[in-house]
Write a protein that binds this DNA or RNA. Sequence first.
DNA 1: ATGTAGTTGAAAAATTTTTTCAATTAGGAG
DNA 2: CTCCTAATTGAAAAAATTTTTCAACTACAT
Lengths: 129, 129
Amino acid sequence: MELEAIIGRLRGRGYKVTPQRLMVLKALAAERHQSLEELRGRCSGVGLATLYRTLDLLTGIGAVRRLELGDGPRYELAGDHHHHLICESCGEISEFEECPLDGAGLGRIGGFSPRAHSLEVYGRCAGCR
Amino acid sequence: MELEAIIGRLRGRGYKVTPQRLMVLKALAAERHQSLEELRGRCSGVGLATLYRTLDLLTGIGAVRRLELGDGPRYELAGDHHHHLICESCGEISEFEECPLDGAGLGRIGGFSPRAHSLEVYGRCAGCR
DNA sequence: ATGTAGTTGAAAAATTTTTTCAATTAGGAG
DNA sequence: CTCCTAATTGAAAAAATTTTTCAACTACAT
């Protein structure tokens, strides 16, 4: 399970597995690309500072991705590779899994060696056309 | 010239071309992906609020892109299509023009019709390998 | 030259994020 | 199971960032 792996990674690095951290992880597992406020809602009892600290920690160990999709940061579990579609009309955010870079891939670019990438696509969702 | 086009667009939409706006535009033309502080440095005499307002305005009319590359927002003229390489070791930001999506292109994705996209590549720069 | 809507700077307000610090707790050692 | 200790937490304060307010100013159409 996804969460188990993250918990293992926390323990492996000497971090404690606290109820607060578990709560944040479960909140993240419940839905993708959530804003801080949404996470707050799902993590009642977890202090604001702890929420920030936990997201920092999880981002640091690669368990969480911090997104900037247009209005304020969002967070999601970093588990699977996918990209975001942002509707410029209604603001809806959706995902797609078929990475357009899969085929072409990213070889060395100049002297730069890629490790990861993020791709955001802006346009209009089905509903808004 | 790039700036002329933007100035035209401002006028066309009923915005005034003020010395402050020109100063911000020239600052943006001087270098890519600048932080607010860098822009501040190049725009002496321009009030902070005006700088924010101007960047907002220019972003609104599509003349400027606001970037989120890792630590704090950055801004650049939206003129040409390019993407960013972010070195995870030293933080250096560089660009590349050859868009990997050029060939494959982005057709309709599900019901979503793409208008633009942004791609950021994280890895290690030549110097850090 | 004039009038006016748009613009500006400075300060205040609002928002967001980080830090501080005393109290609490997870988890290893015995 | 109990103890111990370093890690963690919450609340409040502080810091950083962004937006708003408002009176004075100015670009530019007429």
